[in-house]
Design a protein around this nucleic acid. Structure first.
Lengths: 143, 143
DNA sequence: ATATGTGCAAACTGTTTGCAGCCGC
DNA sequence: GCGGCTGCAAACAGTTTGCACATAT
């Protein structure tokens, strides 16, 4: 039988990463939540199920993923880093009020720039900021 | 006579910010360097000329500027924040090797997204990453 | 048996905060 | 004289590091 975990294990092995239990669980969490969690969110979500889990392991794991090109850093927050599986091109919108991050699809190649023709562009990030529809409605009056 | 400083003072007053000596100097530095300095860079550049200067003042000043819409935060670095005067739309490219940040002009309105029609977008950021021409030449062989 | 991964705690770094003194209106 | 700004030092938060123990091949 082919459990979902098998797929994650394959995904790791394909990138040359040993599929330890913790790594599989972190990868699984990233797949399940497409909300670009912070290290803390990942830790808090998994710690109850993996009592021995350490924050350092989350950091190690995410660095491993980023180095292998499996994940990327989303630097939309002012203070803490978020992580995202590297999937098809999309931008990120962060609501100033509720902090929620929304994906939107965007053709990143279309925003290539002539000025940068002599540059080797490895990654394109598009971060928007503002108010999401929910917060617009809830606080339409006040600041 | 109209010294450059007078212009900076006007700029601050126009935004309702008291033009203290420190603030004028920070603003002047931001105008002089369009390289999106970090707090540390600003501090190290100004400290010799303003011996009493404190890092906290730089932080205070930049927050004041950001709140007034005079400056914006550039979050292209993984760890520390950079600051940029809010000028005409441009994106930022950061070289993985030398860390240099290069501006490029980009029509940010053109990358508006249908999906976000119900969102109130206040700020659009475009961050690219990769290798700049210099570093491409210098290390063309090696990783 | 050996390589590698994990978990803990301490160290580090950038940022924030509280407060006393100072300066400008 | 009063309100606001500065500067210092301590606190904080997120991240990194070093090392001992555990784990997998």
């Amino acid at each position: 039988m082919n459990t979902p975990n098998d797929l994650f294990i394959e995904e790791l092995v394909a990138k040359g990463i040993r599929p330890s239990y913790q790594r599989v669980r972190v990868l699984e969490y990233l797949h399940r939540k497409d909300s670009h969690p912070t290290v803390d969110e990942i830790f808090n979500a998994l710690a109850p199920e993996i009592p021995s889990l350490s924050r350092a392991t989350i950091y190690n794991t995410l660095h491993t993923f980023v180095d292998a090109g499996l994940a990327r850093i989303i630097n939309i927050d002012d203070n803490e880093l978020r992580y995202d599986l590297t999937v098809s091109d999309h931008g990120h919108f962060k609501c100033d009020s509720c902090g929620q991050i929304t994906n939107f699809s965007i053709d990143l190649d279309r925003i290539s720039v002539g000025e940068l023709q002599t540059f080797n562009i490895k990654e394109r990030n598009v971060y928007f900021r503002g108010l999401c529809p929910n917060c617009l409605n809830n606080q339409s009056g006040k600041e």
